[in-house]
């Protein structure tokens, strides 16, 4: 296991302290979470940690990670994680990204994939595929919470959050996640207009998947994304929405293992 020199569950990159889950041993796997917030301990991380050395940082602005004023774009996140890979001299890394974490992963891979052995994208956003008058994704900031839940989950009942059961700290994290997603995603909406032209730079094995019922990032979008990356495979995960790792953890882990072993 790499010594990340954690201090109270945080690692330092430059002047920045990132909340991180570091667990397991084996091939290193950098997990980048999506706009909903960091993966929780006890989630698929535990299962993945049986086979991999999982490093799952919390992006600046989410959870309990502070956001310095100069970090405002997914591009900034990609440089942050490139620094992380360099700092610990990580090699042969499997880079897994969910949603905007998938976008971040692609931004990393087009810049420098020398420390990566594989890119895995789960409901990833990041490029514009439709024409200027066609939304690639529903405008999640302009639809009511219940409609959003119906789009994001195969079973929307799983999206219900009873705020009265959450601690102040959890509510604070929830509010920070929501705000930070808006910061990174607002404009251009969930994509970098330059990124599509750079996808040819990805020369490592790439696997794309999404929930078969994903109403935020449609299977057609994910399949189109895979088609733009040389050699990328595409799969859907049954009975899952935008977060298969939450709705179908076993199927998600099976998918990861099927591609990596």
């Amino acid at each position: 296991m790499t010594d990340l020199k954690l201090h109270e569950g945080r690692l330092k990159i430059g002047g920045l302290e990132l909340e991180v889950i570091h667990k397991g041993s084996g091939q290193p796997m950098l997990l980048l979470h999506g706009g909903g917030g960091p993966l929780q301990p006890g989630s698929v991380i535990d299962q993945l940690a049986e086979r991999f050395e999982v490093i799952a940082p919390t992006h600046p602005g989410f959870g309990n990670t502070a956001r310095p004023a100069h970090i405002t774009k997914v591009d900034d996140l990609s440089y942050l994680y490139l620094d992380l890979l360099d700092q610990y001299d990580l090699q042969d890394v499997i880079l897994v990204g969910f949603s905007i974490g998938g976008w971040t992963a692609v931004e990393i891979a087009v810049k420098n994939s020398s420390r990566l052995s594989r890119l895995m994208m789960v409901g990833a956003v990041g490029i514009k595929q439709g024409d200027r008058e066609t939304r690639d994704f529903p405008d999640m900031f302009a639809i009511p919470p219940d409609e959003l839940a119906a789009l994001a989950f195969h079973d929307p009942a799983k999206a219900q959050i009873d705020f009265s059961t959450l601690s102040d700290e959890q509510l604070t994290a929830f509010a920070r996640n929501r705000e930070s997603l808006a910061l990174y995603a607002w404009e251009p909406y969930l994509h970098n207009p330059k990124l599509k032209q750079r996808l040819h730079r990805i020369q490592i094995p790439t696997n794309v998947c999404c929930g078969a019922s994903d109403g935020l990032v449609s299977p057609a979008y994910s399949e189109g994304y895979a088609g733009l990356i040389a050699g990328a495979t595409f799969d859907t995960i049954a009975e899952a929405g935008h977060a298969p790792q939450m709705e179908q953890p076993q199927r998600f882990v099976d998918w990861v293992l099927s591609k990596t072993t």
């Binding site: 900031f141 959450l166 102040d168 509510l171 929830f174 509010a175 929501r178 997603l181 808006a182």
Partner: peptide, 15 residues
Amino acid sequence: PPGYASVEANVAMMK
């Protein structure tokens, strides 16, 4: 909209 009100104000609203 997210970010319009402060994190503290949003926590209060959720409560």
